[in-house]
Design a protein around this nucleic acid. Structure first.
Lengths: 122, 122
DNA sequence: TAAACATATGAACGATTGTTCATATGAAAT
DNA sequence: ATTTCATATGAACAATCGTTCATATGTTTA
């Protein structure tokens, strides 16, 4: 046979050739992981948060500076930082009255870099 | 000085220390690219589409098989495949009455793999 | 202690999104 | 040609999301 299951008489009466269900059951991660994955990517799916992350690629900033630099409300930025922090993409540190935000780890860089590559190739 | 601009008297009167604006202007990609990036990640931000992609990691499938395997409406799956195709994450091929979908390139794998890593570490 | 400043947060509103339902397109078989 | 099967698509509705506004929390300075 071929490498990947020649699609023979699929979609007849019962649809779903036998193997597909087996594949799905064996290789699909559990629902909760799929859900968490989607939740994670949802966070990258907003241009305000993307802009925040790009700034944090370069410097550690406080909230009001971020707001001013991105020309947005302090409240809007604060709401987004909360979301970024909840998913551990960003961490914070207090210094006097200000709170400084920075990247939590390096997956963010990789993920966004791959995204950029995909875009540039299309 | 330190490596990264010691945050001195920021947020006084004018907020935004001088360099930040320079950094933002010089290192932030253009608005359109940021927007496209967010649009791309938005696509990964739905668990139905994630599940579809995981299936396509393993096999090439037609729409009705996908629908049956994921236990969803043919229409719902078709709408999502359209979105995945528009952003070139997925490609399709006709064979008789059926249309078979498969992954368009390998960035998808990398991006999702990085997402998984991030989740498993938190 | 009071005033000023930086940030966080809850409620509300408009905008966007995913699914469903009904139906249209397009290919194969009778 | 007509029916059947596989897929695509438009409209509609509920749910989710991002921003704004008003206000609360918490820190510093006077």
């Amino acid at each position: 046979m071929a490498e990947h299951e020649k699609p023979e008489g699929c979609c007849d009466t019962v649809c779903v050739h036998d193997n597909l269900l087996k594949i799905v059951n064996e290789s699909l991660p559990p629902e909760t992981e799929l859900y968490d994955l989607a939740e994670l990517f949802k966070i990258f799916g907003d241009s305000t948060r993307i802009r925040i992350l790009f700034v944090l690629f370069e410097v550690e900033v406080c909230v009001c500076d971020l707001a001013a630099a991105l020309n947005m409300t302090q409240s809007a930025i604060s709401h987004q930082l909360k979301i970024l922090k909840q998913s551990k993409l960003v961490k914070s540190r207090r210094e006097g009255k200000s709170i400084f935000y920075s990247l939590a780890d390096d997956h963010v860089r990789t993920i966004i870099a791959q995204g950029c590559e995909h875009i540039e190739e299309n």
